[in-house]
Amino acid sequence: MSLEFLVASAVGLMTAAGIYLTLRGRTFSVVLGIAMLSYAINAFLFSVGRLIVNAPPIYAKGVTEYADPLPQALVLTAIVISFGMTALVVVLALRTYLETGTDHVNGTPDAGETPSDSEGDV
């Protein structure tokens, strides 16, 4: 078994989990799905720089084998951005729940909860 296969299959699995979870009805699951997708994407984006072991992109004279630094920089940016986004979506989910009393993504009220005074019934 190659390292590439492990990474690719892990990316695939995490993506699949992300897709499945984002398709669920509860905001919490969806948030986890988003988190899963961002793991998957970070790994994917990293993988397009090809895999290499024990050759971090720290410059030293004479070194010719090194991990592609660019995808790493991209992943770093992506991590930060997805961190901000995830944080926002978590809080948004929480806040929506507090406001509407349901943690269903489509605003479907749960049994026992009264629907909020929503203004957007069209």
């Binding site: 986004m85 948004l92 989910a93 929506t96 509407t100 489509n106 605003g107 203004e119 957007g120």
Partner: peptide, 11 residues
Amino acid sequence: GARLQAGMQYV
């Protein structure tokens, strides 16, 4: 409420 709900989806 409605804006938050719609915003959730949009995000």
